[in-house]
Design a protein around this nucleic acid. Structure first.
Length: 292
DNA sequence: GCGCGGGGCAATCTTACGTCA
DNA sequence: TTTGACGTAAGATTGCCCCGC
């Protein structure tokens, strides 16, 4: 998914890192300046302080990568009728109660029925699975490492959590989708703030422009100035030189021709210091009026 | 090039659960 | 305290598209 918002003359296309399926935005402004000082928020939708009981629950590929000792025997696995993936997992029946003690501390009834398809077989309505807190935490930890799973990882995770591979797959799909949704919401909020900021900036600049035009028409002193005048940029506090043929054009060009005062070629015209000071003074007054 | 299978994604449905009057 | 309506979160399904074989 790619959204572009460009303002100004140099829209810059951007590419998104596909990592983590997050949607991010870049705003290309005319001079590549951010409108808002706030950087776009990158949501950290993963639990920052997982309560994963790492001593008992382990992420297979993580543990393998770290060379950790496998302790999967501590996570008893109940027999699962895995019809959709064809990978039935089994373990001694004695492990069932141990698993349920591990995973089903919450709402004793519902969260323990997840991996069973018994409801389908006896014709009654199938109860919807609610993952236990620990299962969710474990999946979140896994998601933190891999937002997508390869078949091997999926099987390993399903086995450790006593879920069907399909359930793990669905959980990851939903997790990706909802992460993306939340990130999109955050990004939209950020764009909204940017839009408001730009609107306000535009309104202010329009007002300043009107003030400058009014100043130009009301004060013939402007019109009598030589070709080059100095004005102060209200935004960046820099003095601008406008080398034009008329005073009117100079006034109109003040918004896009601001240079550092040090580089202003003041010596190239016949303006006296007093004339420059007068222009600056008038310009400052106009600016203050516009801002207030 | 075409068909097929697998995986991801978007949209949607469904259900569990919390809140509140 | 109980109960029903309501909203939300989350598990699950479906259909489509893309890609590799």
């Amino acid at each position: 998914m790619e959204l572009a918002l460009s303002l100004g003359d140099t829209p810059k296309p951007f590419s998104l890192p596909a990592k983590n399926d997050s949607v991010s935005f870049k705003i290309a402004l005319g001079d590549d300046k951010r409108v808002s000082s706030d950087p776009p928020v990158q949501l950290d939708l993963l639990p920052s302080t997982p309560v994963l009981p790492s001593s008992r629950l382990r992420i297979p590929w993580l543990s393998d990568a770290l060379g950790m000792e496998r302790v999967t025997s501590e996570i008893p696995v109940r027999a699962v009728d895995d019809t959709d993936d064809g990978a039935a997992l089994s373990s001694p029946n004695s492990a069932v109660s141990s698993f349920q003690m591990d995973f089903c501390f919450r709402n004793s009834r519902k969260s323990c029925e997840g991996a069973s398809d018994e409801d389908d077989e006896n014709g009654s309505t199938r109860k919807k699975l609610r993952l236990s807190k620990q299962q969710s935490v474990f999946l979140e930890e896994s998601f933190k490492e891999h937002t997508t799973l390869n078949p091997k990882q999926k099987l390993a995770l399903a086995k450790q959590l006593n879920l069907r591979p399909r359930q793990v797959e669905v959980w990851f799909q939903n997790r990706r989708a909802r992460t993306k949704l939340k990130q999109t919401e955050v990004d939209c909020e950020y764009l909204k703030r940017c839009c408001e900021s730009l609107t306000e900036e535009n309104r202010r600049l329009q007002k300043e422009l009107q003030e400058l035009r009014a100043l130009k028409t009301c004060q013939p002193f402007f019109m009598q100035l030589p070709a080059t005048t100095l004005t102060m940029c209200p935004s960046c506090e820099r003095v601008a030189t406008n080398t034009t043929t008329t005073g009117a054009a100079a006034a109109a060009a003040t918004t896009n021709n601001y240079n550092n005062v040090a580089s202003a070629p003041m010596a190239t015209n016949n303006n006296s210091v007093s004339q420059i000071s007068a222009v600056l003074s008038v310009d400052r007054q106009a600016r203050n009026i516009a801002l207030t």
